[in-house]
Simulated assay, not measured.
Amino acid sequence: MKYGDALEVFRDAGPYGVAELAARAGISRPTLYRLFSGAVPRADDLQELALAAGWELQIDLAALSDPLAAVAGRALLGDDTVAEWAEAAEAWRERITRFAGARQGRQREAAIVDEAGRASAPGKRPGAVRLRGEHWRVDRLVSAGRASEQRWALSGWAALDALGIDAQAPTIMWVEDARKVGQLLGDSFRPAHRDDADLIVAYAHLSVFAGATAVQDVELVSPLQAFIDAAGLGGDARLQALIEFGRTS
């Protein structure tokens, strides 16, 4: 549940009016009204509001993989093809700017790619399917993508190879329904562990397809998206992508 949804529960489902809820939580009524109007609460205020309304607040940690971080990274680097999602990614734009620090020039641009990749990590995307196969070819992914009747595009090793970058990395297949495409590939691949996957089939935010191109029937993400995805994979993919990005930016 998002904090905005929790505040609605505290306001609408509890037995207390605004004045009483504010008093019970130890915060002022103007502050509570601002929170109900969309202001972001402090963690301690949210905790006190939950207890005052008869709820227990529980916070879970999950691996970070937010596609809007990639949107923000691309926007910061001047990619106009993601303008449609730039407003939604504004918070990530501010974060990545902070994360990149005081670096300048190519170092700053590489830091943006790196930070956007870490925060949008494809392998950590909820519902991602990790697969391993022997002697598979890219045309098998093409046929599965077409059979899914949905949008799809390749990144990871496939995109880096198309850019002339030699890196040890799994291919990423960005799709709209990872489970469906994983099933379509069941005749050529088997489930893999975290570190031995040849292929990661992951849910794609529509921004992933912005700037994508087809090369001999193979749909590939844009070069900038490929660099960000590689940074998110970590290891050799990250290292080689950042080296090449520094050369070409």
Rank of each mutant, 00 (worst) to 15 (best):
V175S: 03
Q240T: 10
Q216Y: 09
K180V: 11
S143N: 04
R118D: 12
A100Y: 06
A13H: 14
A43H: 09
S155I: 03
A128L: 00
D177R: 12
V71M: 06
I59R: 07
D139K: 11
G73Q: 01
L224Q: 02
Q225P: 00
G26N: 10
G164C: 07
V181M: 06
D66K: 02
P15G: 03
S120L: 08
A116V: 07
G186W: 11
A226T: 06
V221S: 01
D80C: 09
L185G: 14
A111N: 05
S28M: 13
D229V: 13
R34L: 13
R93E: 15
Q216P: 00
R130F: 09
D195T: 14
M1C: 09
V82Y: 03
A69S: 09
R93W: 04
R106C: 07
V218A: 00
G38C: 05
V175E: 04
Y3L: 08
A169Y: 04
D60F: 15
V129W: 00
I112M: 05
A128H: 09
P223F: 06
A204V: 05
A86R: 15
I112H: 04
G145K: 00
G78W: 11
A52Y: 04
G38T: 07
A69I: 11
V113M: 04
Q58M: 12
A23D: 13
I112L: 12
F99G: 02
I228F: 03
A69E: 07
L76K: 02
P191D: 11
M173H: 10
A100T: 13
S148H: 02
A91H: 13
E84C: 00
D217Q: 11
L233V: 10
